[in-house]
């Protein structure tokens, strides 16, 4: 048999290799090195962390290829980068840079108010955000090889990450418990592809790896998401907006491995310095809620 490069198995497979790990947002090659040394399984290369995107306002776009390339040169772990929802040309550019994963992200300003990128036509795998099972399965239907629950990025408030993870798991449980004849209506109601609804029911979980994101700022937050059942965590502003990024990063990595060991969680949570300041999600105006972006 001929070798087949970049199949759905290898796209999905890289996410499987990241499980039980922490993916950290970094804005410089120096940050990337600190993240790698702290034990990150991958880094997300971007110009501004979500907390700064919130503070600065304006249109948030794909990062400068020069910055992404510098970060790729600096670390041996996989490098991810973000594109705007629906902006398939930004994705073509990131693919030409050979980034390891593309995040079609609600943290950037959407380029299309109705459509996401057709991710099947890319060799580079995609991760996409979701708030519920229907949104997750629509993204997988478009070709996403990894899912992350959205949470509310740049807040340091874990409440939305919990809401979204619980929603996905609750809906999967409902799906697994319902009689066969209800599947089509369930698929219609959650606006998800029927075949993927059937596959999810058969597997008892999403067909791809599912990380948590958006608002994780402490080792306890990370362990909370792991105990709820996600496969790993993205930490955005939580690390490099804190007092001691190297120490906090390493602590969150340990917390994800030992997520069900309270003694170790207590130990790694000691003396981490200032956590990111944070904003309560309940104080956000409707137009500040990034998780609402996505169709």
């Amino acid at each position: 048999m001929e070798s087949q490069v970049s199949t759905f198995t290898t796209k999905k497979g890289l996410a499987q290799m990241l499980k039980g790990g922490v993916i950290m947002d970094v804005v410089t090659a120096e940050h990337a090195k600190i993240a790698e040394e702290a034990g990150a399984v991958a880094v997300m290369a971007l110009e501004r962390v979500p907390a700064d995107i919130r503070a600065d306002g304006g249109v948030a776009r794909m990062s400068d290829p020069e910055l992404i390339t510098e970060i790729m040169k600096r670390v041996s772990i996989p490098v991810m980068a973000k594109v705007r929802i629906g902006h398939f040309v930004e994705a073509q550019i990131l693919e030409s840079l050979e980034v390891d994963y593309i995040d079609e992200s609600e943290v950037l300003t959407p380029a299309d108010v109705a459509h996401h990128i057709n991710k099947h036509v890319f060799k580079t795998p995609f991760v996409c955000g979701c708030r519920n099972l229907g949104e997750a399965l629509r993204r997988i239907g478009e070709g996403a090889a990894m899912i992350r629950t959205k949470g509310e990025a740049g807040t340091g408030d874990v409440v939305e990450a919990v809401r979204h993870a619980r929603t996905v798991f609750r809906e999967i449980q409902q799906l697994c418990n319902m009689p066969e004849e209800e599947l089509m209506t369930f698929a219609k109601n959650i606006e998800a592809p029927y075949e993927l609804v059937k596959e999810t029911r058969q597997l008892g979980k999403l067909p791809v790896v599912n990380f948590a994101a958006g608002g994780i700022a402490t080792p306890a937050d990370a362990a909370l998401m792991m105990q709820l059942g996600v496969d790993g965590v993205f930490v955005g502003s939580g690390i490099f907006k804190s007092g001691n990024p190297a120490k906090r990063g390493a602590a969150i990595v340990k917390a994800v491995t030992h997520f069900d060991n309270p003694e170790i969680l207590a130990e790694v949570s000691r003396n981490l310095g200032e956590a990111m300041v944070g904003r309560n999600v309940t104080d956000l105006a409707d137009n500040e809620r990034l998780a609402e972006r996505g169709w």
Binding site: M1, S3, S6, S76, V99, T124
Partner: peptide, 15 residues
């Protein structure tokens, strides 16, 4: 030799 085939885009399946 780590990542000997290149980045993720070069990941592959073969018999």
């Amino acid at each position: 030799d780590r990542n000997a085939f290149g980045r993720q885009i070069a990941s592959f399946e073969t018999e």
